[in-house]
Simulated scan of single mutants.
Amino acid sequence: MSSTELPSVLATSVAPKVGAVRVAAGERLRSVGMPGITLTIRSRPPAREGLPSALYVHGLGGSSQNWSALMPLLDGLVDSESVDLPGFGDSPPPDDGDYSVTGHARAVIRYLDSADRGPVHLIGNSMGGAVTTRVAAVRPDLVRTLTLVSPALPEVLVQRSAVPTALLALPGVAGAFTRFTKDWSAEQRVRGVMALCYGDPTIVTPEAFRNAVEEMERRLALPYFWDAMARSARGIVNAYTLGGQHRLWRQAERVLAPTLLIYGGRDQLVSFRMAQRAARAFRDSRLLTLPDAGHVAMMEYPETVATAMRELLADTGELADADATKTDATKTDSTKTGTTKSAGS
């Protein structure tokens, strides 16, 4: 995917389809229509004028809501927006049915070009980590810093617990799984997802669990839900097998932006052992390890992730007042986390 294949387009705001989508206090949703895709954008009003822009990109099966715990903690530092990728959250499927990592990256780039928000602080989780790595590699002009939470970068030995997700990529599996699980309640499905994604599912509050069940019920009613899941899973598997300049590890080596890597010690989907390889691949990187976190550290330990991001912005000169990040209240609790270190710089 080259920058010449990704022209700027004019985005037009259209009436948001909020429906039953949850909007947390201080958030707002809007839909942005572009030729071939419509993206739902979740945002928080900037604390003041002139703040640098940040864009958050969720993983497979996720949505812009995955960032609702983290975004308020960065108020006053960045102008936060999170995107529902095509076919996820409240964004409808893309007209061309392209759910590949390249297709999702193209959607992110088209939005940033059309909104004229770049360069941004770009943050991605899981599949969104693969997507944002590709964006940073092919359009360095759009990225000030890159933060990756358990990025879905190719692994030779995939964890056994990640195999069922990968199997969704096989033709017919999503349909068979739908039939097999047709009697499962939304509560059962959410408990299964949380057991897979959280290092300790008991930290989820009753309110957060209810919200997740409501969102699961809404999304299961969408006619394209399983298709978007299956095709996106296939896109990840295909990205793992690409060679040459489109190989994700090759693109990681091309990323120029300062990069924060966050890995959880209890991650069942992205192996913790990939952390050191990633730290070596990204040329200007720092690594934060969270021994008790699972696959979604920004939802499990949002304060710790926010602290690491503040330090990244301060150390790279992206904060107007770096001293604001050095108070005792924002220091990382070393009893809960590993060390943050620079690598490859």
Rank of each mutant, 00 (worst) to 15 (best):
104 H>V: 03
152 A>E: 08
185 S>D: 10
189 R>H: 09
118 G>K: 08
61 G>E: 00
295 H>I: 12
38 T>S: 08
151 P>G: 05
149 V>D: 14
292 D>C: 06
226 W>C: 02
54 A>C: 04
220 L>F: 10
95 D>F: 01
31 S>W: 08
109 I>H: 11
225 F>I: 04
39 L>M: 00
233 A>V: 02
184 W>G: 03
84 D>S: 01
236 I>S: 11
311 E>T: 13
59 G>Q: 07
91 S>Q: 00
321 D>C: 03
124 G>K: 07
306 A>Y: 09
273 R>F: 14
16 P>A: 04
196 L>D: 14
171 P>N: 05
291 P>L: 05
91 S>P: 08
97 G>E: 14
6 L>H: 02
79 D>P: 04
282 F>S: 05
137 A>C: 11
193 V>I: 15
326 K>R: 15
316 T>M: 08
53 S>Q: 13
331 K>T: 11
89 G>V: 00
1 M>K: 05
216 M>D: 03
53 S>M: 09
32 V>M: 11
160 R>V: 05
288 L>I: 13
143 V>Q: 05
74 L>E: 03
24 A>C: 12
335 T>W: 12
337 T>Y: 03
231 R>L: 12
327 T>G: 15
217 E>Q: 07
315 D>R: 14
125 N>K: 02
317 G>S: 07
118 G>W: 11
187 E>Q: 13
257 A>V: 04
76 G>P: 08
316 T>K: 09
211 N>T: 04
58 H>W: 12
134 R>I: 03
233 A>M: 07
250 R>F: 05
209 F>C: 04
49 E>I: 03
24 A>E: 08
304 T>G: 09
225 F>N: 14
152 A>R: 10
268 Q>T: 03
293 A>S: 14
208 A>C: 01
326 K>I: 11
159 Q>L: 15
292 D>S: 12
181 T>L: 06
292 D>H: 12
95 D>Q: 14
181 T>K: 11
237 V>Q: 10
100 S>I: 09
195 A>W: 04
206 P>W: 06
312 L>F: 09
292 D>M: 07
318 E>Y: 01
43 S>F: 00
144 R>C: 13
244 G>A: 06
227 D>Q: 09
122 L>V: 05
61 G>M: 02
246 H>S: 13
338 G>Q: 07
88 F>L: 06
40 T>L: 01
176 A>G: 15
11 A>L: 08
78 V>P: 01
34 M>T: 09
28 R>H: 13
235 G>A: 06
81 E>V: 02
74 L>G: 04
167 L>A: 15
76 G>Y: 00
176 A>W: 15
145 T>S: 15
52 P>R: 07
126 S>L: 04
55 L>G: 14
82 S>G: 12
178 T>I: 00
136 A>N: 10
20 A>I: 00
168 L>W: 10
207 E>R: 15
209 F>H: 08
289 T>K: 11
243 G>H: 02
124 G>W: 04
316 T>D: 07
292 D>F: 06
295 H>S: 07
297 A>K: 07
204 V>Q: 02
64 S>G: 09
51 L>A: 10
160 R>D: 05
128 G>T: 10
253 E>T: 04
339 T>E: 14
30 R>W: 06
194 M>D: 15
33 G>W: 06
307 T>K: 01
31 S>M: 05
148 L>E: 00
